[in-house]
Design a protein around this nucleic acid. Sequence first.
DNA 1: AGATTATATCTTATAGTACGATATAAATTC
DNA 2: GAATTTATATCGTACTATAAGATATAATCT
Lengths: 136, 136
Amino acid sequence: MKYNTVLLNQYWTDIYFHLRYNHHDKISHQAVRILQLIEKRDSIGVGEVAENLEVSHNTASEHIKRLIEKGWVLKERSSHDERKVHLRLTKEGEKVLHRNSSLDEVKLKQILESLPIEDAENIFQSLQLLSECARR
Amino acid sequence: MKYNTVLLNQYWTDIYFHLRYNHHDKISHQAVRILQLIEKRDSIGVGEVAENLEVSHNTASEHIKRLIEKGWVLKERSSHDERKVHLRLTKEGEKVLHRNSSLDEVKLKQILESLPIEDAENIFQSLQLLSECARR
DNA sequence: AGATTATATCTTATAGTACGATATAAATTC
DNA sequence: GAATTTATATCGTACTATAAGATATAATCT
């Protein structure tokens, strides 16, 4: 069977375009990427951020400094190896990331509640399955 | 019935985090937003871009100038009203936007082909339905 | 003690973001 | 047809983001 990934992507981008948050955060491209990385990874340091964004370690260090100044990220030194840093999001950082990458929960709920239960459950199960495959 | 939109968003962001493109485009936050807006709207001018991004018209005009310089956007004057501008994406602009908002079609295809046909079809139909609801 | 690793800071350079003021040119109103 | 409105463009200015090389520091490993 041939799958129409082009059409699937059209659905995907339409959903995000129409259901995303209308926020007023002043946030840069790299800032969102770093926040995402920190949230999705169990434990991550400055070097791994640099590697992932494909920028130099000093650039990554500067980015993180700015995110800490904004109150979105916390830095902790590893107890085993005091050179290493563990990054994690603050509550505010989680909120900012949510507004910049998730679907608006009010809009989402309205749609789900307007659908027949089996359709809503299908959406839920489909995304669950796809996310599990995506994580390998 | 209560829907767990928080969990659904976790699936959503996991999917995008793991299946997005690893691109090397140097692109800013606002540039992606404007490209998306131009692609999703039938016809859009400078003023509407400004309104949508909630920036002043001169700022929007500057953004668009830069996108034109990069070869991602084309500007055409309306034939009915020569003051108005119609913006549209170039082929290259479409590609850049795709790499910055869509799911990697190779990764997506691999996953869909690894699933039972009814699961893949369910994913397809679920996203189709959700996108239709999102567009109203 | 010396090498390596992980991160931070300083300097410099370029691009992105934003807006007020002003300009232009087409369309509309009086 | 002169005055006004509308849509967009440009100029000047200011501040932030992005990036990397050079250098520094401090912990850990050999």
